[in-house]
Design a binder for these strands. Structure first.
Lengths: 220, 220
DNA sequence: AGAATTAATGACTGGATAGTCAGTCAGCGA
DNA sequence: TCGCTGACTGACTATCCAGTCATTAATTCT
């Protein structure tokens, strides 16, 4: 119940004044609650309480519930995409190795930043917030797809990969990653992986690269 | 706006009495709205209006909003899982062909019954409705996984498939299918497949069976 | 036809909550 | 030490909506 939103607990006095720290703490609290309960079912009193302030304070920093939702989506994601693109740009390995490193990096973003929780939130609320959804599409989804696309096209051009349909392949590659983070952020028993994510990712890569069939067999 | 919930438009009088047809029409309307807006954001007035009745009528057939939600989940899914299991039991083809037919059947279920919309709904609301979520897990997810498991184990036993980690493979196979139906039920531009689902499924299968690598290459 | 039955209605209520604002008090500078 | 500023508070309001029920009318029975 009396959970402090984020890390640094400074003055901790009953009515401490910490103008700098409030927005981030409120965003962190809002991310958790929006993610757990959805936008409509999340009470602003609860968000404020989790961040250790009153609802009035929340309104000092965000104009409305919707503005808070916007800020949550926009404030959490961009830095990690930037970093991923930089990482890939300076990557010298094989296409298969690039793929592996991107997927692992993606997983780490999700543990650190709750980016996965955000994906679940967007899936759930896309219909109610078309603007937030298209912001997310353009800034996260498109850029992420573009990274995978470059790896695949490079791999195919160099003869490392078979010439598969790139756009569909992107989805086939990303979908298990998305489901992994979605189930890790949704308490649905009997769904989600029963093995550690790193192992899950390496099995995914193994199947992706080598296929399921014994060599020689073909589908009719 | 003045959309009739489901197919058969019978008497159509202003205040027609159709005790038999109401529940199904209300469920259909509720499925669409819960799916589009989420549980909390869906108004019962709106559900009733979409089914062409007043809110009072809705309460003649369902005790509460939550009971309606339960009925939506429970009423939509079981028959299709039954049918899929029957189909698989009498399937004589190769494991690869069984896999293909199951995925295609799954896709058809989703177009016909909006089962995919239901998956999106469960992902979004699992945290708020643990009982509904575990009902869904036990009756849909577990049985679905069991079908894939049987196909994979059979394929591996007969030497048709490589001996991959079955549990993780199940997820890698199903995840792209889930994402396919989720994006088909969530109006997120720039997500989802840009090719027809049948083609998407066959590309998924091709990559799944044959892998991405040119034969001979291996990941370090 | 008239009575009895019951599906359907929609105005109403009670509880909940997004958003407001007059007041309080922590921290700082004089 | 004192008084000022503004970050913070929480009671308050206006609204929204799940759930109710007295009334209306479609259908069936006699």
């Amino acid at each position: 119940m009396t959970d402090e939103g984020s890390g640094t607990a400074l003055p901790a006095g009953k009515r401490a004044r910490r103008k700098e720290a409030r927005p981030a703490e409120l965003l962190a609290a809002a991310l958790v609650l929006f993610t757990e309960k959805g936008f409509a079912a999340t009470r602003l009193d609860e968000v404020a309480a989790r961040a250790g302030v009153s609802k009035g304070t929340l309104y000092l920093y965000f104009d409305s519930k919707e503005a808070l939702f916007n800020a949550v989506v926009r404030g959490i994601v961009l830095p990690s995409v930037d970093k991923a693109e930089a990482m890939l740009a300076s990557h010298a390995g094989s296409a298969a190795q690039q793929l592996k490193d991107i997927l692992i990096y993606w997983w780490h973003c999700n543990s650190d930043l709750r980016l996965g929780a955000l994906h679940k939130l967007i899936i759930a609320e896309a219909g109610n917030f078309p603007e937030v959804a298209s912001y997310f599409s353009e800034n996260i989804v498109l850029r992420g797809r573009q990274m995978i696309r470059r790896v695949l096209e490079g791999g195919i051009a160099r003869g490392e990969f078979r010439p598969v349909a790139v756009e569909a392949a992107i989805e086939v590659i990303m979908a298990p990653m998305l489901m992994l983070v979605v189930w890790n952020n949704a308490p649905l028993r009997a769904c989600g992986s029963h093995c550690p994510p790193e192992q899950y990712i390496s099995i995914h890569l193994d199947m992706l690269l080598n296929g399921l069939l014994q060599t020689g067999t073909t589908l009719s």
